[in-house]
Amino acid sequence: MQGIILFTVLASTYLMVIAKRMPALIRGFRFQSFCLFALTLIMAFSEHRLDLYIIAVLLFVLKVSLIPHFLYRTIRRIRANENLGLFINPQLSLIWAMAFTYLSWIFAARLAVFGQAILIGVMAIAFFIILAGMFLMMSRMSALAQIIGLLVMENGLFMLASTVSGGMPFFVEIAIFFDVFMSVLIMGIFVFRINKLFTHIDVNKLSRLKG
């Protein structure tokens, strides 16, 4: 079961990497978050831990429903071009993504030499998600892509923490959730302001602001 879900996470990340438009990206993110939610729920179920249940619920509330909803709303409100604006086209992105997958797998294998195969897999995927999030932030022009990239990275971190080390301390986890949520709100507002000022949310064009 876990294997399937892990594979789905991987797939959703690939989907995000090749997405060309914002709604697709958000959908990908929502899907990924949902998979994580499922993963956490299974873990909570098998280990009978209350804090994991709470985290799972929070995950669902924040990352699966609230944040994607908020992002959708932002897109609609600013009526911006829905294209992400790619520095690297989807095909090339996919190749890059595969390279990252391979790299993170080697990395994970080297880190956890004596671990179980599943542990290595989980670590590899988590690393890959972090890298992919960063790749998204880097290679997409739109400011919203940056937000989602950050969220993806956070997902990767969450996965790494929860699977490899059995989860971070409870309060830390909660705090991170709220942090992420707040930062998304703030960034959303910023995106809104940027759009209002410059009539676009293309971060690349912000370089004109420098002295």
Partner: peptide, 18 residues
């Protein structure tokens, strides 16, 4: 090295990590 592009800065971090 500092053209003001966020993407480039992100890329520096990214390349460093890689």
């Amino acid at each position: 090295l500092q053209p003001g592009s966020i993407h480039l800065y992100l890329m520096y971090i990214f390349i460093t990590i890689i």
